[in-house]
Structures are given as C-alpha cells and as structure tokens.
Amino acid sequence: MKLFDFQFFLSTFPELARVIPVTLKITIVAMLASVVTALAVALVRIYRIPGLRQLAAVYVSFARGTPMLVQIYLSYYGIPLVVQFLRDKYGWNLDVSQIPAIVFIYFAFTFNVAAYLSETIRAAILAIDKGQMEASLSVGMSSLQGLRRIVLPQALAVALPSFGNTAIALVKDTSLAFMISVVEMMGEAKILGARGLRFFEVYVAVALVYWAICIIIERLVALGEKRVRRFEGLSAVRPS
C-alpha cells in the first residue's frame, strides 16, 4: 500500500472544486445577512432603545456563548417546529420538509456571525469622534443622514479588518454544514474519502482549498481596506 496516493490526491480536486460554490454561497449569504442584522443590533445598543436593548444584549451573549454546532442543530430542529406551529395556527400552505437544509444553515450562521459583527460595528461606530455627528447636525443633516453619509463610512474603515477575520472564520466554519447533510466541501471530502478509502489525501486536498479561499479573502480585504481608508492617510490626492 502506498504511503500517499498522489494520483488519487490530484483526482479529488475537480470533485472538490465542484462544490466550492456551495461553501461560497453559505459564506456570502451569511456574511451579507449578518452585516445588516449586526448593524441593527449595534444601533439598538448604541442608542439604548428601551426593550430592544436588553433583548440585543441577551442575544449577543447567547450567540457568542454557545457552540456553532449547537446553533446549527437548534436551527435545523427548531425552525421546522416553529414553522409547523405557525402553519397549524394560521393555516399556511407550507410544507416544512420542502425547505432545503441549506436555509437552516443560512439562519444558523447569520445568527452566530451577526452577534460577533454587532460588537465589531458597535466599537467601530463608537470609535468615530462625536464631533463628526455634531458637524453633520450643524449643517442641518438629520442623525440618520449623518450616520449614513459621514459616520458609517468612517466606521467601515475601522471595522473592515475585523470583517475580514470574521469572513475567514466563517469560511472555515461552513465545514460544519455537513452535520445536517448539506454537501459543501467538507461533506464532499468525506464522501470522496469513503469512496476511495483514502481519507488522508482528501483531507490534505480540502485543507489546501480552504487555505486558498482564505488567502484570496485576505487579499480582497486588504484591497478594500486601501480603498475605504484612502481619506485617512498620505495617499495621493484624488483626481477630480
């Protein structure tokens, strides 16, 4: 028996590549939904909106204090129960078993990642000098306009490196999706390993693919950072 079946190792790449879109889809959907959710949670906490504020604090604490895998199971087994209950109560015409498993993955990851991102965003917004908002108000903008046009773009520059780290962690966490039978890269790797009876080769291959994806994200974040931070430093004067 060969120590390392190079032939087999290489043959797994096209198979793995086939399911890269699944991993990316989970990452992108969860990341986008998380940013929106996290911004709302962060604003609730910054503006201390009564009622919602306590709810947000409990949510963040729970989401950060329980394992991702548990949250996936809670989503997978819990959401159908809720949907079923609502269906029985309001007579919806909806078959729970028709919901693809990946939807529960979207929910679980958004739930988890948004909690971390909300803390990032909250810190980033608080890091912006309050004079920026005062200046916005002093020229007659509303708080919302000041937030959207002045404070948030600056907060984004502060938060972007953390966003990158979160996205990278998320890519790696998507490997848990196979636990509820969503065939993403890790799931595909297990299937290939079982089929060829060579696991080590497949896992080396899948590790390299994850690594490559993470390097690409790192690069993209670095590029984005340069763009959103162009106002901060000694960069060249922007052409008009």
Partner: peptide
C-alpha cells in the same frame, strides 16, 4: 468648531458641498 470637525471621509470641496446637496 474648535476641533474643525471636518468630515474626514470627504475632500475639502465635498465638505463644503455636503450640506448644500444633502440638506438644501
């Protein structure tokens, strides 16, 4: 303001334009 409080993410010209365009 004492500390100027210019919009840090806007150029000098955009700083002056901002209120004119967004508010007025």
């Amino acid at each position: 303001f004492q500390n100027y409080n210019l919009f840090r993410n806007k150029t000098a010209l955009e700083n002056v334009m901002e209120g004119l365009v967004v508010v007025q």
